[in-house]
């Protein structure tokens, strides 16, 4: 793996310690992988060896370099070789860059002495996952969005691809409002081949519509992982002083009240929201992973990956 000796900014996203933890794990696809290797997708191999997977009859237009002459010798027919590389996982990371992701709170985990906002947390998650995928020789892409798609980086498995992803991650600044369902629908249409969709967001939108949109992914036979990132305060609402809540998304929208007076109702709302998502995702076989920024992202991710591996074994 070629790693640049200078440390560009985006490299901060790859925490060695974190990576070392994560690196020992793998992200496996649970579903049927496109191609003709039925069952699990395994990529236990490291290195550059390309494994011969199977043959496909030659069709004019294919790359003549891929012709398997041995098979021609035996059968007098032209077949090309298909390599594992082609059957590898394609995953897209969808990272929510709306204004609500800017929220940090006082309980968030620190990184380099600074508390992480939800977006930063998501950045680290995305970086780690992208790194993992590349090292697994899986393809990984990135989509950043708010109300519209900001940037769409298609999935590639080359190690150099990681750089572009990391750069993009580093560049992105959260802001503007949230509109998840249209994004989901949009992405679902764009991606033709089955893959893994990893959504990193606080999902602050209408749950019904979001679940509807996730259905779309499933309809397309994608596997979806939802990493629901929320700050601790957002689901514990510990405020007790008279406060002025300023909306991070809609400029000028503010509410001044005594938080204690609505705490019960708020928690009720959050509970309903989370419950709806959880149920909805569970029904679709979508992995719903609640993540609080309070926990170190590596621990959270590690825990999740371990659990997922034990499931798929």
């Amino acid at each position: 793996m070629a790693e640049p000796t200078t440390a560009p900014k985006y490299m901060r996203l790859l925490d060695p310690e974190a990576l070392s933890k994560i690196g020992r794990l793998e992200l496996l696809a649970r579903g049927v992988v496109e191609g003709f290797v039925a069952g699990r997708h395994r990529s236990p191999y490291r290195g550059f060896s390309v494994e011969f997977a199977d043959h496909r009859e030659y069709v004019p237009g294919d790359d003549p370099d891929d012709l398997d002459w041995r098979v021609y010798a035996k059968s007098d027919r032209y077949y090309i070789k298909r390599y594992i590389e082609e059957t590898n996982l394609r995953s897209i990371i969808l990272l929510d860059a709306s204004g609500s992701m800017k929220y940090t709170g006082d309980q968030a985990a620190r990184r380099n002495g600074k508390r992480l906002s939800k977006f930063e947390y998501g950045q680290y998650l995305a970086a780690s996952l992208a790194h993992l995928m590349i090292h697994q020789q899986d393809a990984v892409g990135l989509v950043t969005f708010d109300t519209r798609v900001r940037r769409y980086i298609p999935a590639r498995s080359r190690s150099s691809h990681l750089r572009s992803i990391l750069e993009e991650l580093d560049k992105t600044e959260p802001g503007a409002e949230t509109a998840l369902p249209p994004i989901f629908h949009d992405i679902a249409e764009r991606i033709h081949r089955r893959g893994l969709i990893i959504i990193i967001s606080d999902l602050f939108d209408d749950p019904e519509q979001m679940i509807n949109a996730l259905h779309h992914f499933r309809y397309r036979k994608h596997e979806v992982i939802v990493l629901h990132v929320m700050a601790e305060e957002e689901f514990s609402f510990p405020f007790d002083r008279w406060s002025l809540f300023r909306d991070l998304e809609v400029a000028g929208q503010k509410v001044q009240l005594d938080p204690r007076s609505i705490r019960a109702a708020y928690l009720d709302e959050i509970q309903k929201f989370i419950g709806r998502l959880e149920r909805g995702c569970g029904q679709m076989n979508v992995d719903y992973v609640p993540m609080t920024t309070r926990r170190d992202f590596d621990v959270a991710l590690t825990t999740y990956l371990a659990r997922r591996r034990s499931l798929t074994k």
């Binding site: 609500s100 602050f204 406060s243 809540f245 001044q256």
Partner: peptide
């Protein structure tokens, strides 16, 4: 009043 930037506004408004 303490000024807080808040992301989960929709829930706040709903409860309000």
């Amino acid at each position: 009043a303490k000024v807080l930037d808040w992301g989960a506004m929709r829930f706040l408004l709903a409860s309000l």
